[in-house]
Design a protein around this nucleic acid. Structure first.
Lengths: 194, 194
DNA sequence: CGAAAATTTGACATGACTCAACTGGAGTGG
DNA sequence: CCACTCCAGTTGAGTCATGTCAAATTTTCG
């Protein structure tokens, strides 16, 4: 149940002994959700940082005029959660919803603080994790500034081919920041060209 | 020369004793740039993470058709640099340019690794720093997905009033992802309404 | 099978871009 | 002190990409 998480720790340069692993395990709660259930809802506090073991989560928000905008897809081996709400305890403006039946490991904010106190090298892991996240966001902002919708769509396909097959197009459109009709037209262009 | 940096460490929960401070100082190089000089240029490796002591930096990139897009402004007490290039050693796609005469403190990638080895609690500082950066990028992506150019402009003014007074409007436009003419029209609207 | 959701298509509206010209201020040099 | 240049900012006209609304079609799934 914890293999994927510990593998992820290792991938990011973390060496853990048995005692540490047991301690870490004790901080994480295993939880199963069914498709369409919510892990967090707009207005709630995002109490946990959530590591996806199996399935897929989608983080989105709803704007003033009722439109949904997808911030992020989280398949297996990714984290999800609203870091702002988690850190400050303020209500989240995001919804985190299951696109499939999903199994996760969750750690609460106080437990995370304890974890840092007891296993200081977790600071290294999260430093690397957040650093990579900053790099990814950089790219995304750069893409929205520099690229057309078509280019951003192709980049998305390229980068997340596995996600594309598991997620309906209108959600991809809402991630790219375009209307589903526009994505449909773009897809037609791509077909013609190839 | 190091007060601002150490203050920043403290603000982010870092307690340092004299020995640690001296060690840390020895890793940072002080450097002065004149207005319009480049700290990093597209194609170079971003060898340093740069903390701004005085002045203002602007990180931007140039797209296929020669347009500039501003990723970030870094006034005093902020960091600048391309984290991707810094981490991997690959060439950067960004330019980092001085908008004013600027004084910085720089640390190289190998020195940063040494720093983490010698002062492990620096992991905590950068974890927090990157975490806050992730939160800020989240907001920015959410704003580009949810808000109109007008709303994004008002949010920018609200959040960085100090920057607005020190930076020409066409650079703000390139940060917001709109043409300078569009920003000019938006500013006219704002005047009429108030 | 049948209902609901997703996708596609068409017609039209609109916000933002481009190109081009003009204004106004800052700085320079005669 | 004035003429000149340079650059930022503004304004207008025309264009284009993308959005909206509405309807048709296809797919999914109970």
């Amino acid at each position: 149940m914890y293999e994927l998480l510990f593998n992820n720790f290792e991938k990011n340069g973390l060496d853990l002994d048995t005692a540490e692993r047991e301690l870490i395990q004790s901080f994480f709660k295993h939880r199963k959700y069914r498709k369409n259930q919510y892990v967090v809802q707009q207005g709630d506090v995002s109490k946990y940082e959530t590591f996806v073991n199996k399935g897929m989560l989608r983080t989105y928000l709803v704007d003033d005029i009722g439109q949904e905008h997808t911030m992020k897809f989280s398949p297996e081996d990714w984290w999800a959660g609203d870091l702002y709400s988690f850190t400050t305890g303020n209500p989240s403006s995001y919804n985190v919803q299951c696109l499939e039946d999903t199994e996760v490991l969750q750690i609460s904010q106080p437990d995370m603080e304890l974890l840092f106190a007891r296993v200081p090298k977790m600071n290294l892991y999260f430093r690397i994790l957040y650093r990579n996240s900053v790099i990814a966001y950089n790219r995304r902002v750069a893409a929205t500034l520099c690229n057309t919708a078509l280019e951003r769509y192709l980049e998305f396909l390229n980068k997340y081919p596995h996600i594309q097959q598991r997620v309906p197009n209108h959600l991809i459109a809402s991630y790219l920041g375009i209307a589903p009709q526009s994505l449909s037209r773009i897809r037609k262009q791509v077909l013609v060209k190839s």
